[in-house]
Design a protein around this nucleic acid. Sequence first.
DNA 1: CCTTGACCCTCCCTCGGGGGGAGGGTTTTT
DNA 2: AAAAACCCTCCCCCCGAGGGAGGGTCAAGG
Lengths: 266, 266
Amino acid sequence: MEYRIGDFALITRLSVKSLRNYHDLELLTPTRIDSENGYRFYDESLISRARIITVLKAWNFSLQEIREILESCSDDHEVIHIIKQKKQEIQTRIKALKSIEGELSLLIENEKENKDMKYKTEIEIKETEELNIISITYKGPFSDCGKYIGKLYKAAKGKAAGKVFSLYSEDVNHDDPEGTVCLPVKKEVEGPGIEYRTIPAGKVISLIHIGPYDTIGNSYQKLVDYRNENSLEQTGPYREIYIKGPGFLFPGNPAKYVSEIQMYIK
Amino acid sequence: MEYRIGDFALITRLSVKSLRNYHDLELLTPTRIDSENGYRFYDESLISRARIITVLKAWNFSLQEIREILESCSDDHEVIHIIKQKKQEIQTRIKALKSIEGELSLLIENEKENKDMKYKTEIEIKETEELNIISITYKGPFSDCGKYIGKLYKAAKGKAAGKVFSLYSEDVNHDDPEGTVCLPVKKEVEGPGIEYRTIPAGKVISLIHIGPYDTIGNSYQKLVDYRNENSLEQTGPYREIYIKGPGFLFPGNPAKYVSEIQMYIK
DNA sequence: CCTTGACCCTCCCTCGGGGGGAGGGTTTTT
DNA sequence: AAAAACCCTCCCCCCGAGGGAGGGTCAAGG
């Protein structure tokens, strides 16, 4: 029995367009072509070939690959090593997609956390916990900070365990400022120019600063005033925790940035 | 600072071609175009935009989507629901790939099993185990068999637990043959026209038949002869187990088909 | 016999995300 | 002043189809 292309398309559930395409690619050549009108005629023996093509296509083989398989193989076990390769390829792709999925999930998680957070904007006294961190100390403008944060995250490779923060010495030299960017991590991490250490627990006075970083001086002022009014003794550097800053993608609205400043006291 | 396209390409790690393409798509428009020579000049403020594009591209967003995001969003949390959608999309794709991977693994497993198997071609006496099966009984030519096997596998949906076999009555009518195709399954499975039941354990004489199905009569003959010579009493139907038949893809070499014929005896 | 509608043909355009290269102009370095 | 390095536009290529134009062919019904 011979079928015209339309019927053959119905039988094989391939589109007429695809069938013509496969003909051009010599992937599925009609048994006969009418020399008068150019009509394609398909024998029923081609149905199984069409089935093979459909199956291989569903398995993500390209038409080119399918053609090679059909040319060189006549038995399942000759195909098996090609199939193994394809499986590997698919596994690789799954891995890549999973890693993207992971990143996206992380982002969504983070966003959720930040969403409805209310922040107290009064000075509080807190106990901080011990923290394993990696850090980079740098000199230069604050605007370089982002660069180092990137480095830290890269070095941490997913072992990050908290928000980034900076440490500033109590007696900072404003002409030649020095800062340390830190990232809490789960495990020890190594990297060029990266220091791993543990920050001890301690008592701090803390203040949430909402707004852009260039107005953060005011909040420092408040902390210092509070320290002086209450005759507290400062025992360590300032810690500036970036709770919500520029996003992953967009800088966002600086008026909504949230930072926490901590001053270590006795 | 202004950069020419080549330098900007180095900075952003995008290709010159891509940059020109992004310009055409109004995705990343140069800050200035020299009206004399048409050179594109990129401001450093475009670097972050380029970074966003790179990141989104790595997350599998299309350029079109990226353009929409850049047009309508200025803050991470406005993008978050788009990202959620993308995550869903990626999960869907992972699922699809995993299902393909599963099928391929199954195939590879099967092939491995068949690979170096040696078969005894002498009559043996065996005890068979109890078996849960689904089955379809049909009348008509043996060649329809494949169709029903397909149905069984479809109905089993991965719950298949062994090789397909046929059951033939001891007193088959050769003019109007009736056969039952069976597939062992792990759990009960339902489907239209499909029967689920348990085949009891039993004693059988068994013979491996190697070669195409149309010569299988010889092997039946041998079994019957053996039964008669040893005065055994047949107590159930013939069971014809298809150990290695036409492959998933290709019919393969019929001379290498392997079947086992079992005859239930007391 | 003619029309109508269902088929069929070839040829070209479109999608995405660029790469390769031709052909020609400009800038920078030697 | 020449050579090398850049830049431009324009066109074709990849893949696996789908859409549609423009034209030929076949079967059924009036």
